[in-house]
Computed example of a mutant assay.
Amino acid sequence: MENKVSQPTEDGQESNSATEAVAEVLAKNTKKPRLLQHVGIQHVHARSSDSNYEAELAKRGNVELRALVDTLTKQLKESEEARTRQDEEHRKRDEENRKKQAEMDAKNWTFC
């Protein structure tokens, strides 16, 4: 921080004040410089690696969520198709059973 105070600013103007030097160091070296906010100094700039990392995490999270949604959608579709096939099989079996019952009923009436 002492070096920051003694060095001229990037645009060649007068040297940084102690407050500006502290603000710059805190902004570069802490994730969330709350102290700067509490003393009324906006933080100079976010650490680029942190913002890149957070953006990458968000992007990866979105990709992972999309993959999960796609997988679940596929499983749901397969489940619905299986259910439809089962329903069709049950309808066929019920129809066959009704026909067999009708035939048996007809035979029983003829024996009576």
Rank of each mutant, 00 (worst) to 15 (best):
L26G: 04
T73F: 02
Q42R: 09
S49R: 11
N29F: 13
E24Q: 10
K107L: 12
N108F: 11
D50H: 13
N62T: 13
S51V: 15
N97W: 11
N29K: 14
H38L: 14
N108W: 12
Q37R: 10
R60G: 07
V22G: 00
E103Q: 12
S15A: 13
E56H: 06
Q13K: 10
I41M: 12
R60I: 12
R47D: 07
K74I: 01
V69N: 01
K107V: 10
R47P: 06
T71C: 03
S17D: 10
A82F: 01
D70Q: 13
E88G: 00
Q13M: 09
R34C: 00
A27L: 01
D94M: 15
Q13P: 02
K28A: 14
R34F: 01
T110K: 15
D11V: 09
G12E: 13
E103R: 13
K77E: 00
V63F: 04
W109I: 12
D70V: 04
K31N: 12
L26K: 00
W109N: 15
E88T: 01
D87M: 04
Q13T: 14
E103P: 06
D105H: 02
A23D: 08
E103D: 13
E88Y: 09
A18F: 10
Q101D: 11
K59W: 08
H45D: 12
S79Q: 06
T110M: 15
H45I: 03
E95Q: 15
